[in-house]
Structure formats: C-alpha cells, structure tokens
C-alpha cells in the first residue's frame, strides 16, 4: 500500500497533462477478421475518454490488449510510461495492480462470496492490511455502489445489475490509476446507471484517475467522458467532445447520435 501511495504522490508531482496511456498503430486480427487496424490513442492523466463503436467493432479487444490479456499483432502500448511488451510476467502483474478492469461479463468469482470477491485483490496485493482494515475497505467500495447488504451473498444470488455493480466495486478496490470500463452501465435501470456514471466521474475527480469507458449508453458518456473516440473499421475514426461529435456531419458518426 505504501508503494502505491508513493507512486501516487510522485505522479501528482508530475505534470498534469502527462499521458498515462499511449497506443500507437495497433493491429490485431483473428485469422481473416482484422479487428484493429492502425489504432492510435492517448489518454492523459485525470482524463476520461469514452470509446464508442458498433457491436463487434473491437472495443473489448482493444482494452484486453491494453491489459495484456490479448497480444497485439503489431503496434506499441505504453502504460504509465512502460511499454507492456517489454515487461516480464512479474512486472506485468505489478503494473496490473494500478489498472482497474471492469469486464463486460463481470467475471465475478462464482465460488466466492461477494466479500471474498472483493478481498481477493486486497489479500494478494495489499498484504500488510489487517483484517479490520480490509473489512473497512470492502464495506467502503460496496457502499459506493450501494450494495453493502449483499456482502455475504454469493454472486449467483444477485441480479445481473447487482453483479455489474459488485464487479465495479472490485475494479475500484485497489485504488487504480487507470480504469478500463467495459460497458459499466449496460443492464442497469436509468437511475442506477446515473449513479454509476456519477461514481465514475467522482472517482476521476477525487483520485485524479484516468479512465477509458466503453459504452453505448449516451447519457453515461455525456456524464462521464471528457472526450469521445469513435472506433470504426478498426481505427480511431473520429474524436472530440460530445458536443463536437454531435455536430459532425459524417454519416458514420452521425448514426450514433440519432
């Protein structure tokens, strides 16, 4: 924890406009299916960027490449100043603790209770934490997503939306510096969705974290994103603020805002 804190302090000292994530000419294909072709992206510290694209356009593939679950064909990915290609397994694990990742499918551990799901990253990375502190942290993130009462339930006992929120809580529990959200509000009612959007926004402001938000939910994007990137045909087709893109005349861009 101390280590994480010192790094945080260091990064605060650094310039605010520093890039925490730089993706350069990324290519990824599955056989004949060229999902990503020459994709470029920069994410600055404290910035929330939304990635918008049709279903199957490769948004999930993109963030899986960033976290190292998928290996890109070519191109470089630089996270917190380090090229992930050059990292050893151990260093990669270390780096991953600074990245929060919300799975589209939630990926909660079915065999563990909600508490154990949330404790899992804590136990492994904040080893020095006492049981009491651990409990406090778990309750804190659970309260943030409004599910403190489910702490001793199993994931199967929860609704889809509740699972999404537990997964969100797990994403945030290690106080990451970069958060990759894969559709954080899908399957939620508008009210809870709004709550989550606010939470994402707050996280960014409170801890100066950066986020990449994949979403089709325009209200969420409007509420959270400083900037939007359109992923079309495997590359960064267009970019800008919500307002800028809404005024864009390109039919491919336009269809998203109708």
């Amino acid at each position: 924890m101390e280590q994480v804190l010192t790094i945080k302090q260091e990064s605060k000292v650094l310039e605010v406009t520093e890039n925490v994530l730089v993706i350069k000419s990324l290519y990824k294909s599955f056989g004949e299916n060229h999902v990503l072709a020459d994709f470029n992206l920069e994410l600055r510290k404290g910035e929330n960027v939304a990635v918008l694209g049709k279903s199957g356009s490769g948004k999930s593939v993109l963030i899986k490449c960033i976290i190292g679950l998928l290996v890109p064909d070519t191109g470089s990915i630089n996270v917190l100043g380090r090229n992930i290609e050059e990292l050893s397994i151990h260093e990669m694990d270390e780096l991953r603790t600074k990245i929060g990742f919300l799975f589209q499918s939630n990926a909660l551990y079915d065999s563990m209770t909600v508490r154990e799901n949330l404790e899992f990253p804590l136990r492994r990375h904040w080893i020095k934490l006492s049981a009491g502190e651990r409990d406090k942290k778990v309750m804190e993130v659970l309260t943030n997503v409004g599910l403190a009462h489910t702490v001793d339930m199993m994931p199967v006992e929860l609704s889809g939306g509740m699972r999404k929120r537990i997964a969100l809580a797990r994403t945030l529990i290690l106080d990451p510096e970069i958060i990759l959200y894969d559709e954080p509000t899908t399957g939620l009612d508008p009210i809870t969705g709004k709550g989550i959007s606010t939470l994402i926004k707050e996280m960014g402001e409170k801890y100066n974290t950066s986020a990449l938000i994949i979403s089709h939910d325009m209200s969420c994007i409007r509420a959270t994103a400083d900037r939007i990137v359109m992923l079309i045909d495997g590359r960064c087709y267009a970019g800008g603020t919500y307002e800028e893109l809404r005024e864009n005349k390109d039919p491919k861009v336009k269809q998203f805002f109708e």
Binding site: G68, L69, I89, F101, F103, S105, A107, F120, P121, H125
Partner: peptide, 20 residues
C-alpha cells in the same frame, strides 16, 4: 470448475488483478 471460470472470463479477471 476451470472450464466455467474460463468461459465466464474469471481466469482473465484473475490475471487482470495481478494474480498468475
């Protein structure tokens, strides 16, 4: 168990949280 963890991305989730 591992099969269902694999298909529901729990194994990926583990890797992402810095656990081999």
């Amino acid at each position: 168990e591992l099969g269902s963890m694999k298909v529901t991305e729990q194994i990926d989730a583990m890797e992402v949280s810095g656990t081999n």
